[in-house]
Amino acid sequence: MSADAIDSWKTSLPCTRAEAEAIDAADDLAIDAVLMTTEEVEDDRERWRLDAYSEHRPDDAMIAQLRALVPSAAGIDPVIEPLTAQDWVAMSQEGLEPIVEGRFVVHTAAHDVPPSAGGRAFRIDAGRAFGTGHHATTSGCLAMLDRLEGQRFTRIIDIGTGTGLLAFAAAHLWPDADITATDIDPAAIDVTRENAALNGVVGLELIVADGALSDAITARAPFDLLIANILAGPLVSMAPEVVAIAAPDATIVLAGLLETQREAVVAAFGACGCALAEVDRRGDWTILRLTAGATRYVPTTPPDPKGRDGWALDI
């Protein structure tokens, strides 16, 4: 193939944040393309973009599918770009500058930077529809974990691990802890395993699980640090089962919720005996730290699976 041969195609349409969130949360959109959403103007609800990467030039059917995902773009022609023989995943990363949260640096292959003295860098490449750590909720979780470094945790779980980034950060902060990373999507666990090898992270227990009460998870409970960077709906419906695997007085870090959804999430966990300890607001997004009750919580009703679809957000 010559250097300027067409290798793949990129199709772009504007969208709103609500449309982007719906796309990110969907399990299977049955579109023969890799979809990525990007915030074009920080904290602007209307200025987002949908990019679809495909091996073949998009036909009318694919364009119609993409339009159905972003009705706000009605009447706007999609931008269709041929990509030459460059890796389209690498191209998508070129604009992602490294982020620094506390002692952590998160970067892609295109921006390899060393951490500061005593810090830790993680390479998380965009691909397979998972994030890179640049989402405000994930970076906020990194900052929250960094502030907890002085506390002692021995059994940690990252629910909805996505790329594995938060589990990796926990492994760096508490190297002697027993750490479990779970996700509803087997592909996410595959990605986490690959990223762990790439970053030299060892000793994680990786589990594919729908919810928090699978036998593989409960056998490792109770946990004294629980991390769930998912979505507000699943956080509310899963609150009883998440708290059920928490040790007395455990620390629970929750993210993936908008500030407008904070009250509902806090109320759901409050009903299970948890108390709000810290709030970190980043634009429209909010990261919460709660403390479990002094006695082990036992759910009185079976878990409600409603709203779990697409609960892995990290990205």
Rank of each mutant, 00 (worst) to 15 (best):
F130N: 00
L166D: 02
T286N: 07
R123P: 13
P303N: 02
V201Q: 03
A188M: 06
H56R: 15
T300Q: 12
A246M: 08
M144Y: 12
I76Y: 01
V279N: 07
A170L: 05
I252G: 06
A216T: 04
A90M: 12
E194V: 10
M238V: 10
L231N: 07
D314L: 15
I6F: 05
A18Q: 13
T132A: 09
A232M: 06
G270T: 10
G75W: 00
D314E: 08
D249R: 15
A68W: 01
M1F: 05
A197M: 04
V89C: 14
S214Q: 13
L225W: 08
R45Y: 14
G140Y: 09
A61S: 14
W311N: 04
D309I: 13
T192S: 11
T251P: 00
D210F: 04
G140T: 04
I230A: 02
D146H: 14
M238A: 12
V100P: 00
M36I: 15
L213T: 03
V279S: 10
L83H: 06
N199R: 09
E94L: 12
R123A: 15
L29Q: 09
E19Q: 06
L173D: 08
T218D: 06
E101M: 12
H134R: 09
D249A: 15
H56G: 00
T295C: 06
R262E: 13
W9Y: 14
A64Q: 11
I252R: 03
N229Q: 05
S72C: 08
E40Y: 01
A246R: 07
I217C: 05
W48M: 02
G293M: 06
I227T: 07
L231P: 01
Q93N: 11
I245N: 02
I287S: 11
D43P: 00
A26H: 06
E149Q: 15
T132R: 05
P222G: 11
G273Y: 03
A117L: 08
R289P: 08
A216I: 02
D215P: 05
A170I: 09
L13E: 03
D309N: 12
